[in-house]
Design a protein around this nucleic acid. Structure first.
Lengths: 227, 227
DNA sequence: TGAATTGGTGTATAGTTGACACGAGATCAA
DNA sequence: TTGATCTCGTGTCAACTATACACCAATTCA
């Protein structure tokens, strides 16, 4: 089947920087390219936008194809459209970033196109195809920035978590130690999490479990304020 | 001439929210549509992305066609791609916002397509075509937010300005009165403007003229000026 | 020359942020 | 069963930041 237009049109894709916490590191999912250009190189997961789906739906579909996960925190990052960014022709891509919880049932064996997928610590990313290095760097910058003024860190944790786990999450992403008492004060005063009756037992004194308040999610999402 | 592809492609456009200060109001440029759909309705200036130009170049080109201005502060806002946002078919648009100085030589008589163009106070926008109301609202939100943490306000003023004019600019955009002494202290301590030897004379005591330090723009971008 | 107009300056108070140490509640091993 | 070990959970004080607030200065104009 062929499609004909009066004027030339760029191809439109979405690319997604999928973050998760694994092995006490912030990691991103990469796909090894099996075709030229950049064959064998690592790249961000992504693909073409279908005609009947929104950009966000396209990003979710691609994410599901690669990870098996249907839900995640997803936020539009930026749209990259330099004329020469893809050697095959004009391709404009809308970049997204996604956060998936540490305990999500990630399906490791690669996506629909059977390309190899692998988690990679964000501070040690290999060179990426196209302008994906730039996209990944921007995603990390946005995530860090966002963490400072919103509750987005919860999206990387299971439904219930201890304050210490939450603090570790922040420290891993921000790359710096935080003061325990000040951290707890700030988080609790922000009213974005609530205590549950449960405690998590293990080595040492049991820790109270918290969950984030579902209303807070919408609020975080509404603050898509930064370029 | 016709262009044929194996898979259907959305059309790709840019739309621009062009802000300026006029008559002590923050205004945006609107174009009256001369064709269906939404014939006669107001809309944001915009148009198709050419194959050999970046998205930003497309936005600048459209801006020049409508205003005659080639340079402005321009920032990508968000990409809108709901499947039904344009009744003619799938059209994805990359939205930008631009700031042009109050004294810029704006060419009033409409752009290349001879459509009628008009400045409109942002708090009194008419209903707009497509999803342009949403886009304009988001642009205003981003501008206000941005003003609080960056030097972007200067982009709406001539090269040289008084502190009172700068304060008015902030007040107009933020929609609230600011304290004169606190405002001056913050702006001056931020080291983003420098005094010139000139003064502006008029009614009352002459005011010192300032200009913004070109280097400062990038540096200050990360800093937060207003809480 | 003085009335009117706008420009330019400092201080005191409240609120926010950041640094900092120790007892509590559990497990585990002797 | 006891104490050694581990992690959890809590409050205060000092430094900094933000905010509220009023008057004299320099000029124009009548």
């Amino acid at each position: 089947m062929e499609y004909t237009y009066d004027h030339p049109r760029p191809a439109l894709t979405v690319d997604i920087v999928i973050f998760t916490l694994r092995e006490n590191r912030l990691q991103a999912l990469l796909i090894q390219r099996k075709d030229d250009p950049f064959r064998g190189m690592w790249a961000l997961p992504g693909g073409f936008v279908h005609m009947d789906e929104s950009l966000e739906d396209a990003a979710l579909r691609e994410m599901e194809e690669e990870t098996g996960l249907k839900e995640a925190y997803l936020e539009q990052l930026y749209t990259y459209g330099a004329p020469e960014r893809d050697p095959r022709g004009r391709v404009v891509t809308v970049a997204y970033f996604a956060l998936i919880p540490a305990d999500a049932p990630f399906r490791r064996e690669g996506g629909s196109d059977a390309a190899q997928a692998q988690w990679c610590t964000v501070s040690e990313l290999p060179p990426l195809a196209f302008d994906h290095t730039e996209i990944a760097a921007y995603a990390l910058r946005r995530l860090r920035y966002k963490l400072e003024y919103s509750a987005v860190g919860f999206e990387l944790l299971p439904d219930e978590f201890t304050l210490t786990e939450l603090q570790y999450t922040y420290e891993i992403i921000l790359g710096e130690k935080l003061d325990k008492r000040n951290f707890r004060r700030r988080i609790l005063e922000a009213n974005i999490i609530e205590p549950t009756p449960q405690r998590r037992t293990g080595e040492g004194r049991p820790a109270r479990l918290y969950r984030y308040q579902p209303d807070a999610v919408a609020e975080v999402k509404a603050r898509r304020l930064f370029p």
